[in-house]
Amino acid sequence: MEWMPDDPCADTRVARLIDANLDRAREGLRVIEDWCRFGLDRQDLVVPLKDWRQQLGLLHADCYRQARSTATDTAAGLSHPAQQTRSNNTQVLKANASRVQEALRVIEEFARNGDSELAQTAAKVRYALYDHEVRILEACGQNQRRQRLEISRLCLITDPGSNDTSGAMLKRVELALQAGVSLVQYRRKQGPDALRLQEARQLADLCQANQALLIINDRIDLALLVNADGVHLGQEDMPHPEARQLMGPDKLIGRSTHQIEQLHQAQKDGADYLGVGPVYATATKANRTPAGLDWVRTAEHSARIPWFAIGGINSHNIAEVLGAGASRVAVVSAIMGSDDPIAASRELLQRLG
């Protein structure tokens, strides 16, 4: 085994190796830091990354920099086909986290004999980044769901009746998804829990296959069991803080609102989106007085988060709803009660632009 001096700077090869890996680690941290700052807008995720980058910068001694020689580096500019397959931001973040962790491991090994402070710092940052990466990826998952929610204009609510079969309900949803619906809310007021769980699982598979969001109405337990994208809660359902504690930070939580005070409270609580209605009389909410188009106009001026007008909306009256200020609607019978769910979905999507 070749002897390695106690001082890493005494061996140019070791100094060059440490210098290169310090550059890799700091560059990778900067990539992750900037996405957390500009892509996720999460200062709490940015602060540790900046601190680790600065710690490594302070320990990047001049002797390491002076040993640098890119002209004689036989691997300079070498790339790998895997670098061309990073098709989304999450893959970029994962690749850079791995890059940082690998570089820090190299530093830890070669600096241990003569630069213990650097070796210890590299080990500390490496272990901390393992946990921090998980938090960042959770935030990315939440961010992606919110981005997909932002572009969704039509929410399909299943609400099967007591005589509807699961097969018929699932087929209508599948056809709507094929037509371009990107958000489904599973709502069943009647039937045993075993049936609800079965249908929720089947809908989760359908939505995943069609890259659509799945929201479960009322039931946080079902949402968690089928790994749905979120839950929709009414005014009498679980309060938001407790719902968020159960759902975790990366899932969507929607809230039904019927008056301005409820809308303001839902936004204050941190809801991801709102249901605004019922706009018209509807058989699915027969006991609730329609709020009318004035409520839509009020929501248009007051809502700061995505919201869906809901209640008796169909192809015949959607123009009025859009004219009152809505840009998103949620429907039940307009699609689920149609003889041609594909045509019904396409017509509504076309009206929504």
Score class of each variant (00 low, 15 high):
Met1Gly: 15
Cys9Met: 10
Cys9Thr: 12
Ala10Met: 00
Asp11Trp: 07
Asp11Arg: 12
Asp11Gly: 02
Val14Leu: 14
Val14His: 10
Arg16Ser: 15
Arg16Lys: 15
Arg16Pro: 08
Gly28Ser: 14
Asp34Lys: 09
Gln43Thr: 09
Leu49Pro: 10
Gln55Pro: 04
Leu56Thr: 09
Leu59Cys: 15
Cys63Val: 12
Cys63Gly: 12
Arg65Glu: 07
Thr72Cys: 11
Ala75Val: 10
Ala76Cys: 08
Gly77Val: 03
Leu78Gln: 14
Arg86His: 12
Asn88Val: 04
Asn89Thr: 12
Arg99Pro: 06
Glu102Ser: 12
Ala103Gly: 07
Glu109Trp: 00
Ala111Ser: 14
Arg112Pro: 00
Asn113Glu: 11
Glu117Gln: 15
Ala119Asn: 13
Gln120Lys: 11
Gln120Asp: 14
Ala122Leu: 13
Lys124Phe: 11
Lys124Ile: 03
Arg126Val: 07
Arg126Pro: 11
Ala128Cys: 15
Glu133His: 06
Ala139Leu: 08
Gln142Asn: 04
Asn143Arg: 11
Gln144Gly: 00
Arg146Ala: 13
Leu149Lys: 04
Leu154Phe: 04
Leu154Ile: 03
Ala168Met: 10
Leu170Tyr: 13
Glu174His: 04
Leu175Pro: 01
Ala176Ser: 11
Leu177Trp: 04
Gln178Thr: 12
Ala179Cys: 02
Val181Ala: 14
Ser182Trp: 00
Leu183Glu: 03
Arg187Ile: 12
Lys189Thr: 12
Pro192Leu: 09
Asp193Cys: 00
Ala194Val: 08
Leu195Arg: 10
Gln202Phe: 07
Ala204Leu: 09
Gln208Ser: 06
Ala209Gly: 05
Ile216Ala: 08
Asn217Tyr: 07
Arg219Pro: 06
Arg219Tyr: 07
Asp221Trp: 02
Leu222Phe: 02
Leu222Thr: 09
Leu222Lys: 00
Ala223Gln: 06
Ala223Thr: 02
Ala228Glu: 01
Pro241Ile: 00
Glu242Ile: 01
Gln245Trp: 05
Leu246Val: 03
Gly254Arg: 01
Arg255Asn: 05
His258Tyr: 10
Gln259Cys: 14
Gln259Pro: 00
Gln267Phe: 08
Lys268Arg: 13
Val276Ala: 14
Pro278His: 02
Thr282Ser: 05
Thr282Lys: 04
Ala283Phe: 01
Arg288Glu: 13
Arg297Ala: 13
Arg297Met: 10
Thr298Ser: 09
His301Met: 05
Arg304Val: 01
Pro306Tyr: 08
Trp307Ala: 12
Ala309Arg: 10
Gly311Asp: 08
Gly311Ala: 10
Asn314Ala: 12
Ile318Thr: 04
Ala319Ser: 14
Ser327Cys: 13
Val332Ile: 15
Ser333Asp: 09
Ile335Asp: 05
Asp340Phe: 01
Arg346Ala: 15
Leu348Thr: 05
Gln350Gly: 06
Gln350Pro: 02
